[in-house]
Computed example of a mutant assay.
Amino acid sequence: MISPEYCLLMARYNRWQNAELLKSLESMTDADLRADRGAFFGSIFRTVNHLLWGDTLWISRFDGGMGPAETDLTKTDTTDTTKTLAEWSTERFRTDARFVAWAKGVTHLDLTGDLTWFSGAIQADISKPRAMCVVQMFNHQTHHRGQVHAMLGAADAPMYTTDIPFLPE
């Protein structure tokens, strides 16, 4: 299904996209970042916080490091991970480095078998193929960054390319 090379490519892509995203976020006022833009999580800032929360949760399932507690997600706010853009930027940088470090060590064996975890979304244990879960982790990032990219465009913030072929070496 996927390979270690795919994991490294996507981890590098994620880091690059988040660095480009930060440039756009830094051009905006705090009020603009927090304005309700009609998206699923409301604002740009709430959406990037949810993305950071989800990334930390998913990578903890693969690298065994710290992640947010898996509680009842119907009662947990996943959009208040950080309080300021500076704090978000610091945590984003750390998390992106964590993704790349994990991906550099991934082997074909790491992508086989099932991953089992307690799902806060359904309040039960769940098992799914590890490779599929890795794809989900990277797909979740792309999905929410796409939402943010659309909100940035609507807010006349600086835009950037999202195309993988332009990923810097």
Results as ranks from 00 to 15, higher is better:
Thr74Gly: 03
Gln141Glu: 12
Gln147Phe: 14
Ser127Tyr: 06
Ala131Thr: 08
Gly146Phe: 02
Gln136Phe: 07
Gly113Trp: 05
Ala124Phe: 04
His143Lys: 03
Leu73Tyr: 15
Met137Phe: 14
Pro129Arg: 08
Ala101Tyr: 00
Val106Gln: 06
Asp125Leu: 12
Thr79Gly: 15
Val135Phe: 14
Trp117Cys: 12
Gly146Gln: 01
His108Ile: 07
His108Val: 11
Lys104Gly: 03
Gly105Thr: 11
Ala101Ser: 05
Glu91Trp: 04
Arg98Val: 04
Thr81Asn: 08
Ala97Cys: 14
Thr84Val: 03
Pro129Ser: 07
Trp88His: 01
Leu73Asn: 10
His144Gly: 03
Val106Glu: 05
Trp88Leu: 00
Asp96Asn: 11
Met132Val: 05
Asp72Gly: 11
Lys128Cys: 10
Asp72Trp: 14
Cys133Trp: 01
Ala86Ser: 13
Arg98Met: 07
Thr95Phe: 06
Trp117Pro: 09
His144Phe: 04
Ser89Val: 05
Gly146Val: 01
Val106Thr: 12
Ser127Val: 09
Lys128Ile: 15
Cys133Phe: 00
Ile122Phe: 10
Asp77Thr: 05
Thr79His: 06
Gln136Pro: 00
Leu109Met: 01
Thr95Pro: 08
Val135Cys: 13
Pro129Gln: 06
Ala131Met: 11
Val100Pro: 04
Glu91Leu: 14
Thr142Val: 09
Ser119Ala: 07
Leu85Asn: 00
Thr71Leu: 15
Leu115Ala: 09
Ile122Asn: 11
Gln147Cys: 13
Gly120Asn: 13
Gln136Leu: 03
Ser127Asp: 10
Trp88Asn: 02
Glu91Lys: 09
Arg92Phe: 06
Ser127Met: 09
Thr142Lys: 05
Val106Arg: 08
Val100Glu: 12
Ala101Leu: 00
Ser119Lys: 03
Arg130Met: 13
Gln123Ala: 06
Gln123Tyr: 02
Glu91Asn: 13
Ala121Trp: 15
Phe93Lys: 11
Thr142Cys: 09
His140Glu: 04
Thr71Ile: 13
Asn139Phe: 04
Ile122Ser: 14
Met132Tyr: 01
Asp77Gly: 07
Thr76His: 06
Thr116Ile: 11
Thr95Tyr: 06
Asn139Pro: 09
Asp114Tyr: 01
Thr95Asp: 12
Trp117Arg: 14
Thr81His: 10
Asp125Ala: 11
Gly146Arg: 02
Gln147Gly: 14
Gly113Asn: 04
Ala121Thr: 14
Lys83Gln: 14
Thr78Cys: 03
Phe99Cys: 10
Leu111Val: 05
Thr95Val: 11
Gln136Arg: 02
Ala124Arg: 13
Met137Trp: 10
Arg94Phe: 08
Thr95Ser: 15
Gln123Glu: 05
Trp102Thr: 09
Val106Pro: 01
Ser89Phe: 06
Gly105Val: 12
Ile126Asn: 11
Thr79Val: 10
Asn139Ala: 14
Phe99Val: 10
Ser127Glu: 08
Asp114Phe: 02
Asp125Ile: 08
Arg145Lys: 13
Gly113Pro: 03
Ser119His: 04
His144Lys: 03
